[in-house]
């Protein structure tokens, strides 16, 4: 039977949001193409997660083994290679996440399925798969067609589809026997590490003034701090600023940093890669300043200023000092 596989993602007992976003996409593709949606769940003692998946899937396949408790490429690859080769799904959806990005490329080699990564939209048409993704730093969209194949593989960009939630389905769960582990490479999961105590909690701030690459050099940061003080804001940043250690990692907004939802978010010199947008797009009011009128940040901002933050900020700060 032709169908759509969603590889369920979970960590430390919690199902990840991307799983329900993929179930949303999977269910709409299934409806359009008269297919079914199968959630594939690898893990150890995943009863609670199974229940949630049953409500938004037509079938749930479960493999339960201690080796699958935490994501590990060695065991996930061995398990999924077998399942995909045996069941030949039409499409395998995997999250474009730290786990999915690690898993999908080798899995595509092992199964021979053409892979399109970091997709924002996917369509099954006739015997091909069409996908939309971003290239050149998010400034260009690419519409791709893939060569005909029995099975396609796609990694789905987080935040592109709403949560499927409870679709009123009640899928049956089938347990898949644990295979003999072969082709292992000796990778061992050791532990999760969360960051040490932080100087400030940017997620708790009402107003954030966030700086990006456009700040140019660390010597310009005090100017932004002065502006933040003048309007009662906390200073946060995008990835390049944290990478360069101009501000601590605890100030970073985005997928690998913090998700924030302040009343006002002022993005200064931030181009707005999707990883950044995912961390701030739900702010009540977003004001963006950027020299590049084509910067993706303007697609999520409510107010935009095309200009150099180094010129704008001193003038804007004065407005509050004089008020």
């Amino acid at each position: 039977m032709e169908n759509i596989f969603v590889i369920a993602e979970h960590r430390q007992g919690e199902i990840r949001d991307i799983t329900f976003e993929m179930l949303n996409l999977g269910n709409s593709l299934a409806k359009e193409n008269d297919m079914t949606v199968t959630s594939v769940l690898l893990g150890k003692d995943t009863g609670d997660i199974q229940e949630k998946l049953q409500k938004a899937s037509d079938r749930v396949l479960v493999m339960d083994a201690p080796e699958l408790a935490d994501y590990n490429a060695d065991y996930y690859l061995a398990a999924l290679e077998g399942i995909i080769k045996e069941k030949t799904p039409r499409l395998v959806l995997i999250g474009h996440t730290s786990a999915g990005m690690d898993l999908a490329p080798p899995l595509s080699v092992r199964t021979g399925a053409p892979l399109a990564t970091d997709c924002m939209d996917v369509r099954l048409t006739g015997d091909t798969l069409e996908a939309t993704r971003q290239v050149f730093g998010g400034k260009i969209n690419a519409e791709l067609s893939l060569k005909p194949s029995a099975t396609y593989m796609v990694t789905v960009r987080p935040g592109c589809f709403p949560d499927a939630g409870d679709l009123g389905k009640s899928a049956e769960t089938d347990t898949i026997p644990v295979p003999e582990w072969t082709n292992l490479r000796g990778r061992h999961f050791l532990e999760y590490l969360t960051s040490e105590t932080e100087d400030v909690d940017i997620a708790a701030a009402d107003i954030l003034v966030s700086v990006g690459r456009g700040i140019g050099k660390p010597e310009n940061i005090p100017m932004v701090e002065e502006f933040a003080t003048a309007i009662g804001a906390t200073v946060s940043c995008s990835r390049p600023v944290a990478d360069k250690e101009w501000l601590p990692k605890s100030r970073q907004v985005g997928v690998s940093g913090k998700t924030v939802k302040p009343k006002i978010y002022i993005a200064l010199g931030i181009s707005g890669a999707f990883q950044h947008q995912a961390g701030m797009k739900n702010a009540d009011t977003i004001i963006a300043v950027n020299t590049d009128a084509a910067a993706p940040i303007f697609s999520v901002a409510h107010y935009g200023i095309v200009g150099d933050l180094l010129q704008v900020i001193p003038v804007l700060t004065e407005k509050f000092k004089n008020a």
Binding site: A142, K147, Y303, I305
Partner: peptide, 26 residues
């Protein structure tokens, strides 16, 4: 595995109200 690729420049800033004028106005 990609048989065709069409690039498009996405419309940006559709949602944002752009503030214009002199630096002081802005």
């Amino acid at each position: 595995c990609v048989t065709s690729r069409k690039l498009v420049i996405p419309s940006i800033g559709g949602a944002a109200e752009m503030l214009t004028g002199s630096l002081d106005d802005i």
